[in-house]
């Protein structure tokens, strides 16, 4: 009997704490924040420097997708012919069937051109069976929204910065050792 009373007291106590600091949220009306790493639906990024998509349509994400939810094709880049862009090829057509996508993030991992991101978009239910087949303009729009709302830095740029910093640190270390050796040698 005593343990049931103890359980009841616990329930009562948490009722009062719950009234003061509720754990639940009125979800559809109160939006739920997501973590920075949250993997929502994949989207394509926009290179603001050149004003074109990062994607070259190389199809590496399509070959690595476990569910075959994407398709794409590439074309010659007109901006490259004009000398404005260093990309010789550019994406012509891209479609993701988001109903098929399992949000695994493999496409982002294999991409060599920083072209695809897991956006924070996740409330995309539709009433039709294939209502979430998203084409290139829509994907770029989601991607640009993601870029605006987060401080997205292309992963290759990040990796290069990290490597440069490490190299600089190594060089500084080597210089220090050299200087110390020189001092010793001077004595």
């Amino acid at each position: 009997m005593l343990n049931s009373v103890k359980g009841m007291l616990l329930t009562l106590a948490s009722t009062f704490t719950g009234l003061r600091r509720p754990v639940t949220r009125q979800y559809p009306t109160v939006p739920t924040p997501v973590q920075p790493r949250f993997m929502g639906f994949p989207a394509l990024t926009w290179d603001n420097g050149v004003n074109e998509p990062y994607c070259t349509g190389c199809m590496v994400c399509i070959r690595n997708c476990p569910t075959q939810c994407m398709s794409a094709s590439m074309m010659d880049n007109p901006l490259n012919a004009e000398g404005q862009s260093s990309r010789r090829k550019i994406v012509d057509y891209f479609e993701i069937n988001l109903n098929r996508c399992i949000l695994c993030g493999i496409c982002v991992e294999v991409c060599n051109f920083d072209a695809i991101v897991m956006s924070h978009e996740h409330e995309m239910s539709t009433y039709e069976r294939n209502g979430d087949r998203v084409n290139l303009p829509a994907l770029l729009e989601i991607g640009q929204k993601y870029q605006r709302e987060t401080t997205w830095i292309p992963p290759t740029v990040l990796a290069k910065a990290k490597k440069d910093a490490e190299d600089a640190a190594k060089a500084a270390e080597a210089a220090k050792v050299e200087a110390a050796a020189a001092v010793e040698g001077g004595e």
Binding site: Q35, R37, M39
Partner: peptide, 25 residues
């Protein structure tokens, strides 16, 4: 209700680490 409150906290941590609450990969 008690159990899911704790579970939710763990899943929030998982989301911060892996980007997904359940299918982490």
């Amino acid at each position: 209700m008690f159990a899911f409150r704790g579970r939710e906290r763990i899943q929030a941590l998982f989301e911060a680490v892996s980007g997904a609450r359940m299918m982490h990969n």
